[in-house]
Amino acid sequence: MNHATLAAHESLDLHETLNLKTLCLAKSKLMQGLVFDQELRALMQKDVEQSLKALADLQALYEKAPFRTPVPDIRPTPILDGR
């Protein structure tokens, strides 16, 4: 069944998932500055790109949450290497 809004427990689960994915994204971006192996750095960059896509998909679902809290467009800012 396709509902116009999510149930309250689904909204909370989605909110928790968004928070966890955002924290994982921030950690991956920060850890890239500490990694010297280029293969590992490339793998971490791929994780960052996939996480950004997953967050965009999750934010689209978040629009169905009944409490309609706005989702900020803020992304973690890089602090190393100016990227």
Rank of each mutant, 00 (worst) to 15 (best):
P76L: 11
E63F: 00
L55H: 02
L61E: 00
S51H: 14
A42K: 15
F67K: 01
V48P: 05
I74T: 15
P76T: 13
T17W: 00
Q59G: 03
L23R: 10
V48A: 06
A42N: 14
L58E: 05
M1R: 07
V48I: 14
C24I: 13
L30V: 11
R68A: 10
S11T: 05
N19C: 10
G82P: 00
M1Q: 08
G82T: 01
G33A: 15
M31H: 08
M1W: 06
D57K: 07
S11E: 09
R41D: 07
L12S: 03
L55I: 12
A4Y: 01
M31R: 10
Q50Y: 11
L20S: 08
H15A: 08
T77Y: 06
S28G: 06
A65Y: 03
S28C: 13
S11D: 07
D37V: 10
K64M: 03
D57H: 06
L6A: 00
L6M: 03
Q45Y: 05
P72D: 11
F36Q: 15
H3A: 07
L30E: 13
A60F: 05
A4T: 08
L6R: 00
A26V: 11
T5F: 06
L23Y: 04
M44E: 11
R83G: 02
R68Y: 01
Q59R: 13
L25I: 08
R83F: 05
C24Q: 14
M31D: 10
L43S: 14
E39K: 12
T17N: 01
N19P: 00
P66M: 04
L40R: 12
E63R: 05
L52D: 04
D73T: 09
A26G: 05
L61Y: 00
Q32F: 03
K46C: 08
A65W: 04
P78A: 11
C24V: 13
L55K: 02
T77S: 10
K46Y: 08
M31Y: 09
L23A: 07
L43G: 13
R68D: 07
Y62E: 02
Q32D: 03
L25G: 02
M1I: 06
V48C: 12
L80M: 12
L14T: 03
S11L: 02
A56E: 14
H3T: 03
Y62I: 00
M31T: 09
R83C: 02
N19M: 12
K64Q: 06
N2A: 02
E49C: 07
L61S: 01
V71L: 08
M31C: 07
E39Y: 08
